[in-house]
Structures are given as C-alpha cells and as structure tokens.
C-alpha cells in the first residue's frame, strides 16, 4: 500500500462521501499508477475504504476496464462493434494479432503491447476506430494498423 493512497481516499471521499461510491474512482486512480489491479492491491483498497475484500474484488471483476492482469505499456483496444466491423475492424484486429504474435486479450512477452477487443466505442464516425490507452485513433484502415503501435514515433 502506498502512503499517498490514503490522501487520495480523502480527496475522493470529499466528492463521494456516501455508500461505496469512492470505490470506482479509487480503483481508477490506483490502476492509472500501477497499471493493473493485483489481488494485493484490491485487498489494500478494501482496507483503505473499510470494505469487505469480496466487495472490492467482485466490483473490480465486473468492469472490463479494470485490469486484473498486468497489461502492456500500450493497451490497444480495437473496436469490434458492428459499425466498425462493417468498415474492416476484424481485418484490423487480425493484422495486429499477426504482427504482434498474440491473440486479442493478450500482452506481448516484452510487456509493450496489450491487444483487446472493445465493444462499440461510440465513435462509429471514425470507423474502424481504436483506442490506445483510451485515446481515440481513427479511422484506422486495416493496412494502417501500425499507426496504433506508435511504431516510428519518437
């Protein structure tokens, strides 16, 4: 448990003093720092908020954006919603899988990339669209998949 987490709890509780409302904001904030939510982290969160561990784990397990396994530096969410699929999202995903040598849901062994399916990202005007660490990129035609990997950047 990191000491400044307590500080965060204080801050969040000011906004959301009731119920367990502080839970999701705290998980978001800690995940942003830690990259993912390990069982130990979840137990810490339970202690910090004085909640049962079951509650914290159960809640964390419900939401797809809470990562229960370590993820890569770049988390690529490819939208596979119908509108994107109509514009080649499957091919985009396929190219990425081939290039990275992993399947969707996995992380490259070097820890650089995680590839995930996203349900409709509410950006169908940009289809096929993807998010890299939750930042939109689109349209990304399948053949331009490398843009999502930031290769050539820097």
């Amino acid at each position: 448990m990191k000491p400044h987490w307590r500080q965060w709890v204080e801050e969040i509780r000011q906004q959301f003093p009731q119920g367990n409302s502080a839970l999701l904001p705290l998980l978001h904030r800690i995940q942003a720092e830690e990259g993912w939510l390990s069982p130990e982290t979840l137990a810490d969160v339970a202690t910090l908020l004085n909640l049962p561990v079951t509650t914290v784990e159960s809640v964390a397990s419900f939401y797809s954006l809470f990562y229960k396994r370590p993820v890569g530096e770049r988390v690529v969410h490819v939208c596979v919603g119908l509108s994107c699929a109509l514009k080649g999202a499957d091919a985009l995903m396929h190219r990425l899988e081939e290039h990275l040598g992993i399947r969707q849901g996995q992380t490259t062994p070097d820890g650089k990339y995680s590839l995930m399916e996203a349900e409709c990202l509410a950006a169908c005007d940009l289809a096929p669209v993807a998010q890299v660490n939750l930042r939109y990129m689109g349209p990304v035609p399948p053949e331009e998949y490398q843009r999502l990997l930031g290769e050539g950047e820097k």
Binding site: G81, C120, A122, D125
Partner: peptide
C-alpha cells in the same frame, strides 16, 4: 453512451 451505433453524447 454505449449502445452500438450511437455516438452523439460523446
């Protein structure tokens, strides 16, 4: 907003 095909609120 997560209903596939809807992106106005965003």
């Amino acid at each position: 907003e997560a209903e596939p095909g809807t992106f106005k609120d965003r």
